[in-house]
Simulated assay, not measured.
Amino acid sequence: MVFRSPVDRVMPVFLADERGALTQQFNFHQATLLRMLDGLDDGRGARRDGGVVAGDYAA
């Protein structure tokens, strides 16, 4: 089974009250993390090294 991120990444609004700004920042960073996990299958997600393979980040 391949993981698919259930949320969209929305840029936070910079002019907001403190609670709203913190909530938007949290949601943005949460969505960023979920986006990084998008596409991992059970095998790669269970590996202790995070499933990174040397060829994944070739320049």
Rank of each mutant, 00 (worst) to 15 (best):
P6E: 04
P6D: 05
P6T: 02
V7C: 03
V7P: 00
V7Q: 02
V7E: 03
D8A: 10
D8M: 08
D8F: 00
R9M: 15
R9C: 14
R9Q: 15
R9E: 10
R9P: 02
V10C: 08
V10A: 09
V10R: 08
V10F: 10
V10M: 11
V10S: 07
M11A: 10
M11Y: 12
P12F: 02
P12R: 03
P12E: 02
V13P: 08
V13E: 15
V13Y: 15
F14P: 00
F14R: 01
L15T: 14
L15Q: 13
L15F: 10
A16P: 01
A16W: 00
A16G: 08
D17E: 13
E18W: 07
E18Q: 11
E18G: 02
E18H: 07
R19P: 04
R19H: 09
R19F: 07
R19D: 12
R19I: 12
G20L: 02
G20N: 07
G20P: 00
G20A: 13
A21I: 01
A21V: 01
A21C: 08
L22C: 11
L22F: 05
L22Q: 10
L22K: 09
T23M: 06
T23N: 08
Q24H: 03
Q24G: 00
Q25A: 15
Q25K: 15
Q25P: 07
Q25G: 11
F26E: 12
N27C: 14
N27R: 14
F28Q: 05
F28M: 06
F28R: 06
F28N: 06
H29W: 15
H29L: 14
Q30K: 12
Q30W: 12
Q30V: 10
Q30D: 10
A31L: 05
A31K: 00
A31M: 07
A31E: 01
A31R: 00
L33H: 11
L33M: 13
L33I: 14
L33R: 11
L34S: 03
R35A: 14
L37I: 14
L37C: 13
L37W: 05
L37H: 04
L37T: 04
D38V: 03
D38P: 04
D38Q: 11
D38H: 15
G39L: 08
G39R: 10
